[in-house]
Structure formats: structure tokens, C-alpha cells
Amino acid sequence: MEKLIYFLFELVVIRRKMKSWLVITCFIALLLLAYLFPYTILRSPELTWFTYLFWCIDALVAIALMFYVMRSWRV
């Protein structure tokens, strides 16, 4: 978890240069998670409440990734 937070911090704040394939891979993983997670793990009654929050977080990370891709569009 710590590593993930650090990675996201690097991504947004430090703007580490990610290779385009890595961006695409991250995005595909986020997209697959949006389908898989709510229909598997989050179906257990104790975790259902987290579905709304999960989708929001997943979409926000995807949006951050899109802003990252567009960072060089400054002309």
C-alpha cells in the first residue's frame, strides 16, 4: 500500500516520465478493476458499502493518469 501511494505521489507530483506502454497498462488495469472488483470481492455483504467509494477512487486515478498524459500539451 505504501509503495502504491508513493508511486501515485511520484506520478502526480514529481511527474516522473512514464513510458507510454506503462500508462496504457496502468489504464487497462484500472479499467479491468472497475469491472472485476465490484463483481467479485465487493459482493461480500461486509464490503458492499465500499463499491461506491471504490468506483470513485478508480475513476479518479484514471483521470489523474489522463492529466499526466496531457501534461505536455502546452502550446
Binding site: 489504464f27 484500472l30 479499467l31 472497475a34 469491472y35 465490484p38 463499491t51 461506491y52 468506483w55 470513485c56 478508480d58 475513476a59 484514471a62 483521470i63 493518469l65 489522463m66 498524459v69
Partner: peptide, 13 residues
């Protein structure tokens, strides 16, 4: 319904 709309928003990639 939220998931459906947010997946759409992710399509903005």
C-alpha cells in the same frame, strides 16, 4: 449506475 457512468468517463482516455 455510478459504475456505468464512471466507466464512460474513463473512456475519455
Amino acid at each position: 449506475a455510478l459504475g456505468f457512468e464512471l466507466v464512460y468517463l474513463m473512456g475519455l482516455m
